[in-house]
Design a protein around this nucleic acid. Structure first.
Length: 574
RNA sequence: GAUUCCGUAGCUCAGCUGGUAGAGCAUAACACUUUUAAUGUUAGGGUCCUGGGUUCGAACCCCAGCGGGAUCACCA
C-alpha cells in the first residue's frame, strides 16, 4: 500500500484505459531496432538513403502537441532523437484513436515506445524521425523529473538533490546524461586496465571475499557467520595475502579487480565497499613497478579521455610518465623543512609538537613520520609523484630496503594531493615476515587497533618459498574520480551506501476495515491524514469521533456515522 | 564521531516582523499541421521531514529525533 499523488493516480488510470482499448501496456515482445539516436545524428547527413526505414525504441522525454501534429523526443541509450508524429500518418484509416487518445492522452513522459518511420530534417534544421508506426512498449507509472535545457545547454529544472540522485540512481541516469557519461568512463578505466594486464600475460584471478583471517591491510572488517561450519567469517579488507599465495603456487603475474569492505566511517572519499585492483608480478622490484604504473596510467588516461592530461578541479594533471620520485624523508625535508631521517621517537614527537601535528601515545616512529607527511607534504603533490622508502614500522609486508637501514622498498603514488596507488618490493623472507607480524602484535598491545593480525597459513606459504615479487594496489574509485573530475566517491559509484530510507508502513483499506471501521468511512480516515495503524492508535477518541462525523458529511459518504463506542474500539483494537 | 547548513507540490525553488501556502516546469481541460525551455486560456495538486513546546495564532521561534550536504577527525 502506498499513497499516490495526483499524477500517479492519473497514470494508473491511463494504464487501465489502454487495457480497455485492447493495448497491453507491458507487451511481451521483441521490438526490432535498426538505429540509435547517436547513429542517426552522426550519419544521416552523409547517408540519407540508409535512413528511410528506421525502427527505433526509447523513452518518451518531451512532447509538444500542436493539434493533429506533434513533436516529441525519445531517449535511447545513446541520446535523444526528435520525432514528428502526425495524426493522419499513424492513423491512416477513419479511426484516429491511436493519435487522439493513445498518443495525446494516455502516453506520458517516461513511457517506452517503439517507432518506425523515416528520418528527415525539419525547417529549423533538426534531424528528426517522421513516425509512421507507434507501439507502446512499457508504461511508466511515476512522473520523471523534467529537466529542461536551452540552446546554450543551460539547465533549468535540474534533478539535483544529492539524496534523491543517489537513492534513485535510475532516475538520475535517465534525466542527467552526464551521469551516464561518468559511469561509461568508469567502465573504460577498468576495461583498459584489464586489457593492459592481459596483454602482458598476467592472469586475472578471484580470491575469497569471505575470509577466516582478515589480513593484508590495517582496517576494521565486517564480520559475519557461517551457519554450517559454525565459524565466524569476515568480509575481506584486502586480498594481498591470497594473491601472494598464488605467486608461491607458481603464477608469475596475477591480478584481481574487486570489492573490498571496511567497517569504518563514510565520507566523500570513503564508501564501506570499494573497488581495488591488486597485482603481483614475480621477479620484479618496486623500481620496475614504478615504470609499469607510469605506462599503465598513461594508457588508461588515453583510453578514457583521448589524451594523457586530465582536468581535476583547478589543476591539469599530466598522466604520461615519467613521474617525479621523492623519498619520504626528502619530501618532508622539501615541504616541511625538517630532516627527520636520523630522528628517534622522542625527537619526532618534539617535531610534531612544534608543527602542531596531533599525535597520541599509541603511535610508533613510523606512524609519527606518516603524520608529519600527511600534514605537511601530501597537499603539495599535485602532479603524479612517487613517494618512496617508508619507515619499516608502518609497512609489515614490504621488503627491507636493499641499502637504507630502517626503511622498506615501498612507494605510494600521489596525484592531486591524494594517494591512488601503493606498491612494494614484497617481503618474501618468512623469518623476517614472522618478526614483522610480531611487531604488529606489540603495536596492537599498545593500543593500535589497526595493527595487522598474524596469518599462520600465509607464513607457511612463504616458508615454501616465494620468488622476488613486486606488488601494487590501486584504488579504482579514486582513480575514476580523478579521470572524471568528480570530488566525491558517490559520483563514481552507482549505488553509494546510504542510511536506510525511512519507510512509513501505510495501512491498507483492509487493515482499517479489520479494526472495525466501516469500509465507507475509510476515505474519511485518510482525509484526516491517518495513514498508519500507529497513527490510529494515537488518536483521542472524542476528537476522532467528531472529526470522522464531520468528514463524513463533508465528503458526502454513504456510510452511517459511527458511535463513540465504535470509535474507541478502532483505537483500542478491540 | 564533532561542527555547521538544509528539509515547503512529482521536480527546481520563493515564502517579509509569527497572521488564510506561492511561482516555473510537470499534470488535467480546450485551441493549434515544422515545434524545440513550443505557445495561449483555464483548472487541480501540500502530513510545509517527524514529535513535543512557546503563543490567541507556527512553514517561520525553542527543544528532541530522522534524513541529506559541507567542513574536520579516521581510513583507501
Amino acid at each position: 500500500m502506498q499513497l499516490l499523488n495526483e499524477q500517479e493516480i492519473e497514470r494508473r488510470k491511463d494504464r487501465e484505459s489502454l487495457m480497455q482499448l485492447g493495448i497491453d501496456p507491458y507487451p511481451a515482445l521483441s521490438y526490432p531496432i535498426n538505429a540509435s539516436a547517436a547513429d542517426i545524428h552522426k550519419n544521416y547527413e552523409n547517408r540519407k538513403n540508409d535512413y528511410k526505414n528506421i525502427s527505433i525504441a526509447g523513452r518518451l522525454m518531451t512532447r509538444r502537441i500542436m493539434g493533429s501534429a506533434s513533436f516529441a523526443e525519445i531517449q535511447d541509450s545513446s541520446g535523444r532523437l526528435q520525432i514528428y508524429v502526425r495524426r493522419d500518418d499513424i492513423c491512416p484509416e477513419e479511426d484516429k484513436t491511436l493519435y487522439n487518445t493513445v498518443f495525446k492522452k494516455l502516453l506520458g513522459i517516461g513511457d517506452f515506445i517503439g517507432l518506425k518511420g523515416f528520418i528527415f530534417t525539419t525547417q529549423t534544421g533538426e534531424i528528426s524521425l517522421h513516425v509512421q508506426e507507434l507501439t507502446l512498449l512499457s508504461k511508466s507509472l511515476k512522473p520523471l523529473p523534467v529537466v529542461k535545457r536551452d540552446e546554450e545547454g543551460n539547465v533549468y529544472d535540474g534533478f539535483t538533490d544529492p539524496e534523491l540522485r543517489y537513492r534513485q540512481r535510475y532516475v538520475d541516469l535517465v534525466v542527467n546524461p552526464e551521469v551516464k557519461d561518468t559511469f561509461v568512463a568508469r567502465s573504460r578505466v577498468i576495461s583498459s586496465m584489464r586489457r593492459y594486464f592481459d596483454d602482458h600475460g598476467w592472469l586475472e584471478v578471484e580470491t575469497p571475499i569471505l575470509q577466516q583471517v582478515h589480513g593484508g591491510a590495517a582496517a576494521k572488517p565486517f564480520d559475519t557467520h557461517h551457519n554450517a561450519l559454525d565459524i565466524p567469517l569476515f568480509l575481506r579488507i584486502a586480498n594481498e595475502l591470497y594473491l601472494k599465495r598464488l605467486i608461491v603456487g607458481g603464477f608469475e603475474g596475477v591480478y584481481e579487480i574487486g570489492k573490498m569492505f571496511r567497517n569504518e566511517g563514510m565520507d566523500r572519499t570513503h564508501n564501506p565497499e570499494f573497488t581495488s585492483m591488486e597485482i603481483y608480478v614475480a621477479y620484479k622490484d618496486y623500481n620496475w613497478m614504478m615504470e609499469m604504473v607510469e605506462d599503465l596510467l598513461g594508457q588508461i588516461a588515453q583510453a578514457v579521455l583521448g589524451q594523457t592530461q586530465a582536468k581535476v578541479g583547478e589543476n591539469t594533471i599530466e598522466f604520461a610518465g615519467p613521474y617525479r620520485r621523492l623519498t619520504m624523508f626528502e619530501s618532508i625535508q622539501e615541504y616541511a623543512g625538517v630532516d627527520v631521517s636520523q630522528m628517534d621517537e622522542k625527537a619526532l614527537r618534539a617535531v610534531c609538537a612544534d608543527m602542531g601535528v596531533e599525535v597520541d601515545d599509541s603511535m610508533g616512529k613510523g606512524k609519527l613520520i606518516d603524520e608529519i607527511f600527511g600534514e605537511k607534504v601530501e597537499d603539495h603533490l599535485i602532479q603524479p609523484t612517487y613517494i618512496t622508502d617508508y619507515p619499516i614500522e608502518m609497512t609489515p609486508l614490504a621488503k627491507k630496503h636493499r641499502d637504507k637501514p630502517g626503511l622498506v622498498e615501498r612507494f605510494e603514488l600521489f596525484v592531486n594531493g591524494k594517494e591512488i596507488a601503493n606498491a612494494y618490493t614484497e617481503l618474501n623472507d618468512p623469518v623476517d615476515q614472522r618478526e614483522r607480524f610480531e611487531e604488529q602484535l606489540k603495536l596492537a598491545a599498545r593500543g593500535d587497533d589497526e595493527a595487522m593480525a598474524m596469518d599462520e597459513d600465509f607464513l607457511r606459504a612463504l616458508e615454501y618459498g616465494m620468488p622476488p615479487t613486486s606488488g601494487l594496489g590501486i584504488g579504482i574509485d579514486r582513480l575514476c574520480m580523478m579521470l572524471t573530475n568528480k570530488s566525491t566517491i558517490q559520483e563514481v559509484l552507482f549505488f553509494p551506501q546510504m542510511k536506510p530510507e525511512k519507510k512509513v508502513q501505510v495501512a491498507t483499506d483492509d487493515d482499517f476495515i479489520a479494526r472495525g471501521i466501516h469500509p465507507g468511512l475509510v476515505p474519511a480516515i485518510r482525509e484526516l491524514n491517518i495513514h498508519t495503524l500507529d497513527q490510529l492508535r494515537g488518536q483521542n477518541p472524542n476528537k476522532l469521533f467528531n472529526d470522522v462525523c464531520g468528514k463524513r458529511k463533508k465528503l458526502k459518504l454513504e456510510a452511517p456515522n459511527p458511535t463513540k463506542d465504535e470509535v474507541e474500539n478502532w483505537i483500542n483494537g478491540a
